[in-house]
Design a protein around this nucleic acid. Structure first.
Lengths: 351, 351
DNA sequence: CTGTTAGCGCATTCAC
DNA sequence: GTGAATGCGCTAACAG
């Protein structure tokens, strides 16, 4: 049995009605090679021939088979991204920007989620390599050494995001988490807070959370406060965790007068706890978030937080990817600026 | 020049360090055909041979080249999704669930965004077909006829989400937007509200927004209220739009005592407006949202809203995709249940 | 400028 | 059961 059918107009088509390059060439009266050249913008083709090919392609609605193209040319224009989860606006925004730019640059994006698990990340990386991605966008600098090595061996470019540290990767676009932490430390100290606590994200396998915390503690030390006295609770980025962590903190003695949260999500939970327990913000306690998500403006009082340009980060990563690595000599780091957004949730330490 | 290198152990590898099936076969001491059979679960292979192949594959870290596999087998195990934007939790959650299940089922996901533009959606669909996706997940039932026809001609399955209406598609997983609208109408009427308004999403090109509105108006009519008297404002799902729309509504006379918002985002804006203008919720006005996002619980007062099982929707879509269409006779619709979540933002109409 | 030729890596038919 | 041979659709080298 033949896998082809001969339709009434004499052309030969695949069963699914998919138009192949051969069909275009047939209609244009040239060889597939010529048709291929035209469709790939190769200049060395006669004007008349070129026009006929273009016309045929349009009329037939030709769409190149990217599997074949990829197999042959070793170029897929495919990029992969492995992020912790899409169910967190800070990552969804980044991916949104990444996708948008990539699409404009003629590349496609395959996404996978790791659920903050470096093991899972490794598995997903292998899958993406199998899919033929030429680059891979990862979150943060900390990864399983196997992952990094594997990707390097496979010739896949690694772009780290939300960080400025390239380490084993090829490029990074993000911001200085440690400096952001220090900035908050200074801000709270300038408001005369002395009893300060932090609700951090889980630092295991998460360098962003760790650097934020460390930078914060460093900043406090530098201002004459002992980091020993700073109570730090770690919790996954969920509202309930913010609530419970704040509850724990409010039961310590002496109570902190300021709490820095590693994410607006945690901060929103903290605010919720205070509101429902008669703890005034910022009268009794000041709360600082991180990320500047929509919720920062919606909670009452609105959150003082650190703005993270997530979408721009994704867009910039896409642009980095569109450049061939050779254009860039060695490691390529692009630092974006975070900035403190002062709203209603912070104030001077109570007298 | 050869494109291969002979490494010290005598095996032949591609320059990029990628392991091919040939390498596995070589190490296992069999032909590529046998290796292929083993790796594809073909039964007709001797036990000893099978074990050796499996071992070799593991040791070498073999990952099949999916371009080659796709080209040969005409099966890519690739699915595409076109959603309005990732910068809206309701879609990000769905994609999160979709991706997770797809990954577990050995399929990969390419995402594209349309920004609520049906023209853009058409373009993205062509790109995805070129990428070889076997199915495509779309949001809603309303699409450019060209898109629908094109996908059908290309043999690509269309799964619609957030809706129960298949129309030109092959399957749908979602909920009854119209029924949800009616449910809210009944709920507000039971609370004795008579002056009722709505802040809807943009209905052009968005059947979900339109059905929600129409169902709501139908429900009000059925309860004896004239839809003529119901003021409806349309606005994109942005907080500021919720603020401005609420401002407009509060300047009408007589003021509505209840406002149904087509999204929690709009509702959150509405709440924010009221809070900053001394309008009591629900004392002066009741507000109902839609989606049940995290913000619904964070705003003060917390939002009465309609719960939409976005993540489950994505998960279910993935499962539908894993079944071959032939297993399902014709159109396949899966309806998920929405439910009313009553919180603090609603109460009886003021006397 | 254009056509002919030769694979990319893999699954699969056909012999054995 | 197993291996050799074939070609999926396309691009790139090589002739002409």
């Amino acid at each position: 049995m033949s896998s082809e059918e001969t339709s009434s107009d004499g052309s030969t088509r695949s069963p699914a009605g998919v138009v192949r390059l051969r069909d275009v060439a047939l209609r244009a009266g040239c060889s597939v090679a010529t048709a291929s050249r035209v469709l790939n913008g190769n200049n060395k083709v006669g004007k008349a021939e070129r026009e006929r090919v273009l016309a045929a392609a349009t009329q037939l609605g030709y769409v190149p088979n990217s599997s074949a193209r990829a197999l042959r040319s070793q170029s897929t224009r495919l990029v992969g991204a492995i992020i912790p989860t899409l169910d967190h606006a800070i990552y969804a925004k980044m991916v949104d920007g990444l996708q948008e730019q990539l699409s404009a640059l003629g590349m496609s994006l395959i996404i996978n989620t790791s659920e903050y698990d470096l093991e899972r990340e490794k598995t997903q990386a292998r899958i993406l390599v199998g899919r033929g991605v030429e680059s891979i966008v990862l979150v943060g600098t900390e990864h399983d050494p196997d992952t990094t090595r594997y990707l390097r061996d496979a010739g896949v470019r690694q772009i780290y995001t939300y960080t400025c540290v390239v380490d084993g990767g090829d490029a990074a676009v993000g911001f200085d988490n440690s400096a952001a932490g220090r900035m908050i430390a200074n801000y709270l100290r300038d408001l005369n807070h002395e009893r300060i606590a932090m609700i951090a994200g889980v630092t295991k396998g998460n360098d962003r959370a760790r650097l934020r915390r460390d930078g914060f503690l460093e900043g406090l030390e530098a201002s004459g406060l002992s980091a020993q006295d700073v109570f730090v609770i770690e919790a996954p980025y969920k509202i309930e965790n913010g609530i419970h962590a704040m509850q724990s903190l409010m039961q310590t003695y002496p109570r902190p007068t300021a709490v820095f949260c590693g994410s607006d999500i945690l901060a929103a939970g903290a605010v919720k706890y205070c509101n429902s327990h008669g703890i005034r913000i910022p009268g009794d306690v000041s709360i600082v978030g991180f990320d500047d998500l929509e919720i920062a403006e919606l909670v009452d009082p609105s959150l003082t937080t650190v703005h993270v340009p997530a979408k721009q980060m994704g867009e910039h990563a896409a642009r980095m990817l569109s450049k061939t690595p050779s254009e860039k000599s060695g490691h390529d780091v692009h630092e974006l600026q975070t900035r403190l957004i002062v709203r209603e949730s912070t104030g001077p330490a109570p007298a």
